[in-house]
Nucleic acid binder design. Sequence first.
RNA 1: GGGCCGGUAGCUCAGGGGUUAGAGCACACGCUUGAUAAGCGUGGGGUCGAAGGUUCAAAUCCUUCUCGGCCCA
Length: 953
Amino acid sequence: MTAAPASPKASPTMSAPDYRPTVFLPKTDFPMKAGLPEREPQILERWQQADLYAQLRAARQGREKFIYHDGPPYANGDMHIGHALNHVLKDAVVRTHSLLGKDVPYVPGWDCHGLPIEWKVEEAYRAKKQNKDEVPAKEFRAECRAYAQHWVNVQSQQLQRLGINGDWKKPYLTMDFASEATIVSELLKFAESGQLYRGAKPVMWSPVEKTALADAEVEYHDITSTQIDVAFEIVEAPNAPELVGAHAVIWTTTPWTIPVNQGIAYGPEVEYLLVHVTELDGSIRRYLVAEPLAVEFFGRLQLMERAQRGEIKRFDSSGPDFKGANLAGAIARHPMHHLGGFFANPRPFLPGDFVTTDQGTGLVHMAPDHGEDDFALCKAHGINPVFAVEGDGRYRADWLWLGGESKNVINPTLNAPDGPICSDLKAAGALLSAGPFSHSYPHSWRSKKKVIFRCTPQWFVPMDAGSPTLREKAMAAIAATQFTPDKGRNRIGSMVEGRPDWVLSRQRAWGVPITLFVDRKTGDYLVDKSINQKIVERFREQGVDAWTPEFAAELLGDRVDQYEMITDILDVWFDSGCTHVYVLESGHWPEYRWPADLYLEGSDQHRGWFQSSLLQSCATRGRAPYNAILTHGFTMDANGRKMSKSEGNTINPLDVMKTYGADILRLWALSVDFTEDHRIGDEILKGVADQYRKLRNTFRYLLGALDGWSEDERLPVSEMPALERWVLNRLAVLSGELKAAVLAYDFNRYTSLITGFVQDDLSAFAMDVRKDSLYCDAPTATARRAWRTVLDITFHALTRWLAPVLVFTAEEVWGTRYPDAGSVHLLEWPEIDAGWQDETLAHQFILARKLREEAYLKLEEMRRAKEIGSFLEAVVTIETTNEDRFVAMQALDLTELLLVSRVTLVKGASEALTVGKSDDAKCARCWRFLPVNPETELCGRCTDVVGEMVHDA
RNA sequence: GGGCCGGUAGCUCAGGGGUUAGAGCACACGCUUGAUAAGCGUGGGGUCGAAGGUUCAAAUCCUUCUCGGCCCA
């Protein structure tokens, strides 16, 4: 003890001396109030100055490695609650495995290219009334780069504030020149191995901005379009010959797509009928429409009114109903077939699952250039897009119908009932109706102008080419990967199984170019290893700005005119799909190796990073870049609903850290079931803060109880009483359970095991029982030394075990006891002797605690009856007929364990537990009810201890 | 609309055919006043999202519905 208690002071009352100064109360400077928001930044600063991350790398040098590879968040805003949860989990994985003694490097990264950053930079231009197109590309990209770098810096600070221990001095960025060079080099591997092809796909296209738009760049407005019914004459119908000569009717709100029609889709299960219209001259026209839509069709054609007005003789829909499946093999011709060429080609009927009877005629005109369903169905039947509409929205000059028309196809006058399309159709006898139609239609977010669907050439990675195919390789890799939780396998598996080819190209500025040259004659892309090598080298020096026509000329020399230089950029998922290459494999971080043991992200990344990395790696390396995947769910508000700014139910992790501290946020993240969606809110955070307080107070008590501890005091386990050995047994069991939880990434279990032990075993039981010994026994007493020895062991175990969770508090606790010992985070798993486990003891204590519970129920009754206050005033008598039970109880010091004045064991005629009040007096020092010396009011033990002190003094 | 997943006390979580569904926290009441803005004890609190079904027996297995989530359309 550093401060020996003084001698008893004379009590102010005459009755008894004040023995308080002779009691060894806990003593510590460790404050009860945490003040985390102020304290944490100070601790963080110490770590930064000492370069804790580097220290940890040095401390684990040469140890077994655990390769965790960090997925890159997007660098465009403040950290949100999802980032916080995600990074706390990552940090917990890294720290717990590090605690197990492994070398676990953690290089954080950021995703820096892509559209959202481009937008933000463009927005700034617009604010300055500048036009993006007038800014040189290089300058524009420099601004994107600066924008991304800004948010990398901000997020780095925020994540460090959260206590994430990583290599913040040397993170990886997808926009590092070395990364950009690697991405290009990986792309060229696809090219060299023939895993790229140029195809086409309908995308949202803005004719005004002459660019493709992402879904997020599109907004919907109500507009009025022209709806038309158009008749296509059926010329062949092998399964329904009676249809030849009849007209299939299609309905559309985009008349401009009729000049690009290439077929008609029907629903195989839809019921169709023929409408007969008898003209005044007696001739009959027959129209094929879906039965459920016939009445609406009559309405649009005003057949009833026309019949009443005498414009037609009559109409009826008699005739056999039949299923669409009978249309298989049928052929129609385009209303403008007389123009020849493209228009003279047959227009086949194709079965489409997407055909419904909600609207229209149940027959859908197919323009593969301008619709996703159209494109897919036509492609499946060998019909390809014709690219009749150009980037500015006009028909190609050489198009047979309306070629050279000066208006954009989406122009209302072009589509109007009196416009050229309708006029020509009418002249051809094919226009059955034309009128206004109100609906919701996509517009460009920026120009507010209408957009169109338009097929454009794109670069693809084939999923099903070669043997084994990429899909097969990916499926095999999924089977070989460990998933936590296991349902992730199913999820990514069904996605990969059904996904289409990977579209790699984007028509954008801020990204890594697709560095290909396409032969203008053959359409083949150039595969030249020496040129490719030069490209990669140049990118390493200059990054994405290297891709210029000048560089192309330099590479190709006099062949430059023979090739088209591709200016598309890569899908950013390709960037992030390559992180395993430049982080794990490049040697830029020599502490890493390929592949990773673990990837850890939200479950949305089954479609994102997990998949892009999988496909990239399977295509270039034949296996996944990871051995295991850990996924977490999403953070909802207190009511289990998704957070959104417009709902005003968001929780900002920066605010939580300001109000409660990072350790509270971390404890929250590691307490919830992260494998599912989980909640956060004020009530929840208050609960977590309460939990934290309990842990903090336990540490405070441990520190106070261990005040003045010296190694001389340590007692061998063999000399310890049962309670001490039982606590060691609990630590040994706990150690095994915690290790299992770490290996299973079960942090919820990890934290609840610790808090359970602290609350139930330590605070409510062992510490309560041993207060008497700690406070009142002589410092040299074996019992007190035994308890302090166990407290010391417990202290070392708990600080280490909690260090990955309460990173700041653990450091504060450790530093309070060992101010000069360095960081708690460099330490390893506590040394727990497996021999401490003791089944017999464990069973004895289950019995003891049951008796305690039973006794307390009865004592509580006495207390309610005001017969006693403290349980120390009570005596307990336990009677049993059972010999084994008697022996077991005898082995325990039940008076101590029950915290009463005396427990009497009786071997008698019944099983009973009775309680009563002690006849003894209260010892003025230890407050137990025992025989006391009436003069000093001290029990025997306290008489000795106090006597010793007076003697020493 | 489709695929996948989830709903157990006010909160965070256990339990995955077999007594009367548990723990910690919160809450109420009490003890202690030598962990004191702490510690200890006792207590109340549940239609296990809903409805059907299988079974001697269902929180647990099946079906439907509902609410919520992620990913698609």
